[in-house]
Design a protein around this nucleic acid. Sequence first.
DNA 1: TTTTATTTTCAATATTTTTTGAAAGTTATG
DNA 2: CATAACTTTCAAAAAATATTGAAAATAAAA
Lengths: 169, 169
Amino acid sequence: MTLEEAKNKFIQTWGGLGSNWGINKTMAQIHALLMVNTEPLTTEDVMEKLEISRGNANINLRALCDWGLVERMGVKGERKEFFIAEKDIWRVATRIAHERRKREVEPILKALSAAKEIDAKDIRKKEAQEFIEFIESLEQFTRKVDGAFDKLIKADQHWFTGTLLKLLK
Amino acid sequence: MTLEEAKNKFIQTWGGLGSNWGINKTMAQIHALLMVNTEPLTTEDVMEKLEISRGNANINLRALCDWGLVERMGVKGERKEFFIAEKDIWRVATRIAHERRKREVEPILKALSAAKEIDAKDIRKKEAQEFIEFIESLEQFTRKVDGAFDKLIKADQHWFTGTLLKLLK
DNA sequence: TTTTATTTTCAATATTTTTTGAAAGTTATG
DNA sequence: CATAACTTTCAAAAAATATTGAAAATAAAA
């Protein structure tokens, strides 16, 4: 396998993984492409190397910027925009975690809280009490996990890979 | 909102969440339905309450059993099969984590390791060395997170909600 | 064994999500 | 200002994924 082939293989793999993590395939592939290229690339480069349309490249590059996984870069004397990826895997992971937490946890808590608003006529039923109790256990659990996640995201990599992981041995 | 409406709302919400976690909508809805019903339900019940086809109900009930989130139950004197859900949210979470780990981490590590097999003619290039180094940092990180995950799955809930969460305060 | 109840399978269909590409928008340059 | 270089948008098309429903398979009962 040539270096080129190895890089392509990695791009494909990373693309496949992305879909498991709420990131679409193209977005993950662009991210992979930018990670294995030390020099910044233009939209045109991305289109060519991944054989995708301009619209697709544009939309996903923007999404990657929103997620904080990619940065726009101006290059002196060039009119085009250049893009460069976050390469530090710890930062990549925390950025993804941060974004997903924001998008997912809040709606869950809102929905759970809404589910408890039961009419007076029903609320005294044993069945209703059981239901409410169940929803509350879910809420409590969600809050706890969310809190832990939040701390993890804010923690620094050394503490994580050192201290915390030792505790989990 | 009546108790019935509240339950339905919860089922819908849980269904929506599922898709964020690699579980399809129907699968998550069936799981929710079984969680809010103390008594076991049949395939027929699930079809009616969620207004889905027999095939869909069957396939997703089976998947839930595979994930360890639902159990088949025989009921004395009844010919039909009954299903009951895991209701303990900690167990639900660890089962999902366990299943996803199995399906996702192994393929990642395999693919990363394959990406390093670069031809002799390229291997001496500085660029190849950088690439390999990068892939290795990814492998190392994946292994660490995976290890932590594994421990977490095997840990008991008390230790998690008590000891570990305090450390993350 | 035959009948009947129940579960499973899977090709066809429907739905959701992603991608395309061309037109409209923007910004720098002469 | 006009032109050229580049970026953004979005309706339509394609691809991926989930769902249906009826037929086949299985298992219990008669």
